[in-house]
Structure formats: C-alpha cells, structure tokens
Design a protein around this nucleic acid. Sequence first.
DNA 1: CGGGGTAGGTTTTTT
DNA 2: ACCTACCCCG
Length: 731
Amino acid sequence: MDITHILDGLNERQREAVTAPVGNLLVVAGAGSGKTRVLVHRIAWLIEAEGASPHSVLAVTFTNKAAAEMRSRTEALLDAPPRAMWVGTFHGIAHRLLRMHWQDAGLPQNFQIIDSDDQQRLVRRVLRSLDLDEQRWPPRQACGFINKQKDEGRRAREVVTGEDHYLVTQKKIYESYEEVCRAGGVVDFAELLLRCHEMWLERPDVLEHYRNRFAHVLIDEFQDTNTIQYASVRVLAGDRSSVMAVGDDDQSIYGWRGAKIENIHRFSQDFRDTGIIRLEQNYRSTGTILKAANGLIDNNTDRLGKELWTASGDGDPILVHDAYNEVEEARFVADRSHEWIDGGNGADEIAVLYRSNAQSRPLEEAFLRADIPYRIYGGLRFFERAEIKNALAYMRMMNQRHADVAFERIVNLPPRGIGPKSVDAVRVLARERGVSLWQAAKEGIADGGLRGRTASVFAAFLALIDDMAAEAGTHSLREIARVCVETSGLVDYHKKEPGERGLARKENLEELVAACRRFETERTFPLDPRGDGGDEEAGSVLDDFLDQAALESGEYQAEAGAAVQMMTLHSAKGLEFPLVFITGLEEGLFPSKNSDGEPGRMEEERRLAYVGITRAMRQLYLTRAETRWMYGTDSYNPASRFLFELPDDTWQEVRLGGAVKRARFGAPTPRAVDAEDGALRIGQRVHHGKFGEGIVMQSEGHGERARVQVNFAEAGAKWLMLGFANLETLD
DNA sequence: CGGGGTAGGTTTTTT
DNA sequence: ACCTACCCCG
C-alpha cells in the first residue's frame, strides 16, 4: 500500500510522532505546531502502515467540534472511510458504552442525560426536601461539590467529612442527590464518566472486551483531562495497549474545572516505556509574536519546558494601546479592524478576545457603529435556551410519561393554574408510593389522593399530554416537535411576551421544528462526531434526538458570511486568526482578581494570556482601558502584569493624538502595598541601586515574603523582594 | 395562582 | 448595568 501521502508535508518531529513504533507516546505539541495533523496522520499510519483495524482505534477529544474535525480529516486522508473507528468526546464515548451496557452499569435501559441546568434544578429540590436554606447552601455550590467529587471518582459514601459541618452537609446533599438520580433514571455529565469507569472496574469481562478491542487509543488536549478521565484511560489501556497522548502543558486553562495539568507530567511514569516527542516548530505566528509568547510563559514555573520557534520572519511588532475607557478601547479596535478590511482583508480574519463575556457589549456597539459585521461566540447555546428546553421536555414526555425532570419543568408551563402547592401534593404522593410524578397524579385523580381543584387541573394536564401524543402519532419526529411547540401553547405563550425576546423565542421554537425535520432524514446533526459502529441497537429517532441534544447543545448550525469573531480567550483555544486583538489587559480583569492569592491560579491566567497571544498569525494588538465601567461603577485598574512580562523588543505603544506624556501604560491607581509598611504604594516612584528609577506596579505577599513589581524606565518590569531590594522612595 | 416589583450576585466552559 | 430569584399583592 502506498503510504507516502501520510508522510508528505510533515516535518521531522511530526513524522517521528506519526511513525513511532506502536506503544505509549506523549506528544508535547506547542501552539500552532500541527497537533491535530499529527493525530490524524498517526491514525492513518496505524491503519495503513501498521495494518491496524479501524475497529481497534479509539480517538478521544473534549469537544464535539474537535471530534468532528478529527473524523472528517481522517476520512479524507484514508482510502476507505473507517466506519468502525470510534472518534468522540469523553462524554460521548462513555454515553455510547453505557447505552450498550446499561445492564452491566446498573442503569435502567431508558436512562436520560441531564445537563447542568437540570442538575441544578434537581439539587434545588433536594435542598428543599432536606430543609436546607438555599441562601446558606447555594445550589450552584452544591452542584460544584458533587461534580468535583465525581470528577475525582468519589461516590457520596466515600466522601470523608470528619467533623466539618460544611462537608457533612454537602455529603448529605450528595447522597440525597444520588438517590433522586437513581430513582429518576437520570445521569448527569460527570456521572457518565464515573459510571463507565466503575463498570470497567466491576465487570472485568466487559473491560477485557474493550481492552482487546481498542489496541490503539489516541487522546487530544491531554492537559485538560481530569482525574476520572485519566484513570479511565489507564484502566482501559492496561499494560498492553498503545496510548498516544497529545497536549501542551502551557495551554492548560481549565484547572478550575477539574483538569489536572499533572496528568501530562504523570503520563510517562504511569504508562510503560513512554516515548516523548516535542513539537516546537510553529507554523502559525510571526517570530515576534512567538518571542512575546515565550517570554511571557517563561514567568511560569513547573513547566515541561518548550520553546516555540518559526522558520518565517519576525513580522511586525505587537501593538499596545492604552485607552482612556472601554468605549475608546472598543472604538480603537473597530477602527483598526476597519483599516484591516479596507486593506483588502477579510473581516473573518479578525478575532477580538476578552477575559469575560461581559466585555463584549461596548465592542459590539463599536462594530455596529463602524458597520463591520461581527459574530459573538459563547453565551447560551441553542439546546440550552429555556424555550428549547421546555419544548424538549414536552418531547420527552411524549416518549416517557415517567420522566420526572421533564414533568416538573412543563407541568405549569405555559401557566395553567398548577402552582407550587399543587405540584407539592403530587410530589408527596409520588414519594409515598414510590412512583413517578405522572403515575402519582394519575392514581391520585382516580383514587382520591388528589381532590377538588388540584385533581381537576392535573386531569387537564394529563389529558393534554395524552392528546398531544395521539395527535403527533408515534413515528414522525417533526410531528412530535410541531405538536409540542404548538399544541402545548408554548408558541402562543412566547408570542405574547413583549419585545424582541418573545419574538426570538418564537423563532427558536420554529428552528427546533426545522432541526427535527433535518434530523429525521439525516439522523444526525451536521456536526455529528459519532461513528456508525453498527454494533449497537439504535434507539428511536426521538431518543437519539434527545440524547444528542443533551450531549451536543452547541452550534450545529453552519455560519454564513464573513464577520469579525468575538469570543472569550477560553473559547479561542485551538483557533487561529491573522489579526488578533486581546482587550482588557488590566489587573483585576486579566488576570482576573479571582485568581489572585493562590499561586496556581495566577499561572493559569498567564497560560490563558499565552493561549491568546499564540492565536495571532500576523498581527497582534493588546489593549487596556484606564477606566472601565463595570458592575455599575467605574473601576480604575492598573495595566496587566502580563504587559510588563513581554520582552521589550516585541511591542510598541500606539497613542492617538500623542500629546500627553506619561509613564508607560499611564499611572496606576494608588493602593497600599503592604499594611505593615504604608510607605510603598502602587504608583509610587522608587529608586533602585542597580535598575534606576521605576514605578511600583504590583505587590504580592506580606511581611518578609512581600514582593513588589517595579516597572523601571531602563530595565523594564522586575519583581523584587522588599527585604532585599533596598528601594528608595522618590515622592 | 400569577404578574410585577425589588434585592442580590455577578470569570472562564464542555459535556 | 443586568440578569435571576424571591416576595407580595391583586
């Protein structure tokens, strides 16, 4: 078989990774070094050169988008599209296994996946049943606790609490939540992974089957794996299979979500005879941009160590702009975008990045005013919108009357006179009799468990659902959707809502019906990453649709038209753009003030800045605002420390008008450095024996450990120990 | 029961 | 500033 097409166009390191002997391999792939390419070509190599069966390949990613891309690129490279290969997200693959092995996993056959929103609703109900105050025990926090435990592989009974009242209570909530999920036959995202992992441990026969099957495991973005994902890979790999882990410790930005950067460090110890290959040649950015990125990330300790380089030229310096406020900052970004587009370039070559979504508003207004098309990523995705979830809940009820989560959601939506009290009566009945809410309502009406008005409103609701089911028939997904949206009264309900919002919701519901029609013929969303293994029984179209809606809440719609892309730094990971703006480079915003304190958090912020910088191919702008209107007040934030960490010869300041002379990035806001010593404050001018004059920018720690960052006129930004530096104050 | 007004809390995000 | 979650009254 001719395999040259697999190796053509790869550099030496890439080729080394692709053709490495079958076995464990860690590929540390820097930004823009051709990571996906290596994964895809490795799969092709295994199949066409090593003779591996597509059946034996398992490729795992984090997002559906990445999975879809990997699948399509692999298929394009191979002679015969490998249907039997498994490519998917951790969650998608776990879900698939659980559907096939529901009995081995101890789940009901018709278990349903709930998203984080549903989870929070369930937890809220648990809190009420435990009589806990929601102010003191915020549902969000409880969800966080539960998910964290599951991500660490711990069941409620395994949580060690000691005497700690907080832990004791959270454990109680977790236990109770587990029971509610079990009784309702629902599975949350973290549960998919944990349940699958437990199944392997408890059923060695099942594990053995998959160990034999998946001789080749490939994992993308390995630095983002959490404890349970790492453990699962280890268990599946056993000591035979070959695992290729690809990742970049410098791009680990999901620690707050449970990702363990250590996993990438541990890999070579835990997996036998691991080869390590570093991909450091960057094909994306200019030399200047890479130099800035390298210089910045060098401020982090605890790295595997890696330095990106490029064979292309230096390119233009990074341009730094210090705006008066966020409106001017936005105008600057829009102006420069305009120039770029006028120069004959596409709007879609531009990305505007920010730390938090709240920053998008002024940017949006500036682009609107400048008449530049833009598109904002992030925020609520289609299947997470309330009106869509309502409609999906009706669809679920069509299928399974006993789906309590759905029942709770729509029982009084649109409002039909079933208030909290009536629902409570049914809940009590359901708990007493150990049946679903639907069953409890039905029985209650029949045997007098429910009376009077309560009985009649529920009778009407049950009849509505039954009638809708009859109207829709059982076979057409599109019909079910149409009925759920129209006969339920949802469309009318939203039509009556005032303003844009009601209209948008009504349109979303119509879009849902259209999506169902498409799904019916294609049996998949356009971005479907799942392979057709063909070795599992397919559920009904409706089941499949609801599962996919839960697991793939995202942007399944194709986007049309060239537009500037606006998104958070997090969502920009994996993307690249010729022109990139990173906005809001201010202390407190980026790095976020929430990341102060814990040292690990600050390093993660720096990695986020690294990710942002390395998105840029040709030109990078960094902007900040001296004054920013946030949370209803003006805040004055000093320039981000990350600006000072860039090597001096990589950037230039852009000033408009250029009349005002001031220190680089303007004078920071005065703020006491250390309670113990009021003499030094942020913004203070100081003199140092060796470095000369500078301005205090930042401080860290207290007492003996206190350090300040001083931006010296000559020497640039330095961190100094207060105890040793012998700084002289100047004014 | 349901609509409207007010108080609290606001990183990042996938699945 | 803005969204949400809750409280009170019709």
